[in-house]
Design a protein around this nucleic acid. Structure first.
Length: 476
RNA sequence: GCUCCCAUCGUCUAGUGGCCCAGGACAUCAGGUUCUCAUCCUGGAAACACCGGUUCGACUCCGGUUGGGAGCGCCA
């Protein structure tokens, strides 16, 4: 019984003509989740049949970032290494008379296209070379004339059952004889996909909605080659703010960019999973394991989803908050200046900003004052809103006196808080004392709390900065 | 233009004929905690595109209108 059920096999099939982007990851993710949920196989297939546009560096970008996200594939293929396979099927179609060589010039084709467009017809090839005699064809081939291979598709209504959208019908009368290869060694997208999906035993083709128009072409090819039809699931598109398909126009959507900005892979995955899918509960936070457990194609949305970066930020911040101090420190290290600071100290600094970071790279600007000798800020910053420069100077003097009296041994957060709060509360608005303290230590309008900062900074450095602040105000 | 797809708060969405004068989350606004920022807590504003039909009863089913999107390569 178990064995009659064939194993689920899905694939993500990017072309290495650019960096891996968020839209691509979402497609990969849904393929991954579905196959893992069904205990199946997830395949990565590099579609590099376009020799001019495909670059090894992009393939590297795709595989590295997919791995970073944890979307590990079980099998890997590269179409450029499979030309012999495509050739075999191409020859089959040619022999059966279901495909033919076309020698039409691009300019000539373009003119026809324009004419059709102006007449309100979908542009399609009219089949001029279809009736070429065998001899003429051979001789022109021998002469090395420019040519392509076209496919004669059956004219009929194709209906397929989309797992997400239900029945979709398309009249192939509207299709011309599509080009399936430039020559026997150079297959084109719609053809190589059909061959590979069959050869790789793909059971479920899960891809973006923008591929719906390709599906009837591919089904026609399957039928001509006598191949079985896989199941299809067309995902809703990822949209920009303007509700058009997410693209470079909407800014750099490469995974690499999000990665270097300090987004966590689990946040990206969680965010993308909820774009076009939801578990039907009110939960929002999911690990990849939970996603695998909960995922189902039935719950995938039909309408496109706007990529809302604010929500990604929120998720990322929430994942950052959940990290242990040591984990977070390791993650944040690349964004910090190379100082000889001991790891323990680093962890303390980072702990101060754990709940203030939306992404890892922000730590650099947030905690920079721990890594410089001299702070640079305008002296006006030291004065609290309800206070005056004179009072501020007095407050700083008081701070110096009080803190000098604290021993190194007692220099820890709660003790400092006790002492300073006790002093600050002598006035109704404790900002008169705490604001100058904090700004003197950080040089910032906004930062972590003064007791925490002073603790991490240490007694010596703290007093040093208080004195520097006093000097700034000395002119008064 | 033609073909196909889609339609609940600003955004992501719950809702599968009565539980919905529509629930959650992000964003936003107000308040609390607070020297600041952030976290956290409380509260508010905010949507079923429209018109018909089916039904005792439609956000939910059907039809149309409008609107939006995608595709129309010797790219994938």
């Amino acid at each position: 019984m178990q064995n009659t059920q064939k194993q689920i096999r899905t694939r993500y099939a990017p072309s290495p003509t650019g960096p891996l982007h968020m839209g691509g990851v979402r497609t990969a993710l849904f393929n991954y989740l579905f196959s893992k949920k069904e205990k199946g196989i997830f395949i990565l297939r590099i579609e590099d049949t376009d020799k001019a546009r495909s670059k090894p560096e992009w393939e590297k970008d795709i595989t590295e970032n997919l791995s970073w996200l944890g979307l590990q594939w079980d099998e890997f293929y590269r179409q450029s290494e499979r030309t012999a396979i495509y050739k075999k099927y191409l020859e089959q179609l040619l022999e059966q008379g279901k495909a033919y060589y076309c020698f039409c010039k691009p300019e000539e084709l373009e003119a026809i296209r324009q004419d059709q467009l102006s007449r309100g017809v979908i542009p399609h090839y009219t089949g001029k070379c279809r009736g070429l005699g065998k001899e003429e064809c051979e001789s022109r081939l021998k002469k090395g004339e420019a040519k392509v291979i076209r496919f004669i598709g059956e004219k009929k209504t194709i209906t397929f059952d989309d797992l997400i959208r239900g029945k979709i019908s398309f009249d192939t009368e509207l299709l011309g004889d599509i080009v399936i290869a430039k020559d026997l060694e150079t297959p084109l997208y719609n053809f190589s996909v059909v061959v590979d999906d069959y050869e790789m035993n793909i059971t479920h083709v899960i891809r973006g909605e923008d591929h719906i128009p390709n599906t009837p072409k591919q089904i026609l090819l399957q039928e001509a080659l006598g191949l079985p039809r896989p199941l299809y699931a067309h995902l809703p598109l990822l949209l920009g703010e303007d509700r058009t398909k997410l693209s470079k126009r909407h800014g750099d959507q490469s995974v690499a960019r999000y990665r270097t900005q300090g987004y966590l892979p689990e946040a990206v995955i969680n965010f993308l999973a909820l774009l076009g899918w939801n578990p039907g509960t009110e939960e929002e936070i999911f690990s990849i394991e939970e996603l695998i457990k909960e995922f189902s194609l039935e719950r995938v949305q039909k309408a496109g989803a706007v990529f809302n970066e604010k929500r990604l930020n929120w998720l990322n911040a929430s994942y950052i908050r959940k990290k242990s101090p040591s984990e977070l420190t390791q993650l944040v290290m690349p964004y910090l200046p190379q100082t000889g600071l001991e790891i323990k100290k680093l962890e303390q600094i980072i702990a101060l900003y754990q709940e203030r970071m939306q992404n890892l790279s922000e730590i650099a600007a947030l905690a920079d004052y721990f890594f410089v000798e001299q702070l640079d800020y305008p002296k006006e910053l030291l004065t609290w809103k309800n206070s005056t420069p004179r009072k501020t100077k007095e407050a700083l003097e008081k701070l110096e006196t009080i803190l000098s009296a604290v021993s190194e041994k007692d220099w820890e957060r709660d003790t400092l808080a006790n002492i300073l709060l006790g002093e600050a509360e002598k006035e109704k608005d404790r900002g008169y004392l705490l604001w100058p303290l904090r700004t003197a230590l950080t040089g910032k309008q906004a930062s972590a709390g003064p007791f925490e900062v002073a603790t991490v900074l240490g007694k010596e450095k703290t007093l040093e900065r208080i004195k520097e602040a006093q000097q700034k105000l000395t002119a008064i």
